[in-house]
Design a protein around this nucleic acid. Structure first.
Ligand code: ZN
Ligand code: ZN
Ligand code: ZN
Ligand code: ZN
Lengths: 132, 132
DNA sequence: ATCAATTGCGTTATGCTATAACGTGTGCAA
DNA sequence: TTGCACACGTTATAGCATAACGCAATTGAT
């Protein structure tokens, strides 16, 4: 999915995510956009839905938060499953891909005749900088 | 983590999960236990916390639900990362392990000096039976 | 036996996450 | 012009999770 011209709300939400140090919850985004006229969660969720569809934002299922894609222009989704390492101390997120992991998972999926729609890989832990 | 004797509440929650066809949300579990005297979400969440700690129940992050471990007695967690395929049509969950996936992910983690605490792999899609 | 610490439990209240439902306005194509 | 698709705004509601309090039972020293 290629991203068309963003609407005002989509652009505002994307901008907040891009400038953020780490992942943000929808309600945190809402708070950051009150000055721009945002009033209700739905304004954020609707924008996020589109940004997710365009592939420029990822949802982190294990922490109910959202991040801007770390590989803009590469069309992440076209080269396999996206994985995330999430530091529970500083909130930093590292986005990466591993083709071998993709192959193994997709091999298993095929053997089970399971039709995958969306795959989540999230490693929560402590990043190098935060390690005691 | 080996499971000690379960308390009454823990046993009730585990029993509900074991008998269920698929994953259940905490509030669904609560509803199923009203007749046994359950009144508040916390009674469920506290039991779930322990069952998760003992490794006899898994949490599915992408759907905010819980399932009984499909490999009782095998101590899932000791032989690597647990992965789930979740059918969005019938709710069935298949729990599996893949050492190669573990190795790849743990290799990446080591190369980044990232300290993993909890890893989530969830494939949402359609199972063979539900495929059109 | 007694005291202190731990653990489980019950209850109330609250906070966080997400969507339903309704109505408005705008742009575009038949 | 009419109909449709889409974004938007607002209010209300649904669904998920935890804080904080107090009490009771258990355990494990002393
Ligand atoms: Zn990406
Ligand atoms: Zn960190
Ligand atoms: Zn298991
Ligand atoms: Zn199915």
């Amino acid at each position: 999915m290629n991203a068309p011209q963003l609407t005002r709300n989509q652009a505002l939400v994307f901008d907040v995510l891009e400038k953020a140090e780490g992942p943000l919850s929808a309600y945190t985004i809402l708070d950051k956009l009150r000055d721009q006229g945002f009033r209700a969660p739905l304004q954020v969720y609707r924008a996020l839905d589109k940004l997710l569809e365009y592939g420029v934002v990822h949802r982190l299922e294990s922490i109910n938060s959202f991040v801007a894609c770390a590989h803009p222009g590469e069309d992440c989704h076209s080269h396999g499953i996206v994985a995330f390492a999430i530091c529970e101390s500083c909130g930093q997120v590292i986005e990466f891909h591993d083709h071998e992991v993709d192959h193994r998972l997709m091999g298993w999926v095929r053997s089970q005749k399971f039709k995958p729609a969306k795959t989540t890989i999230e490693i929560r832990g402590t990043c190098e900088a935060c390690a005691a």
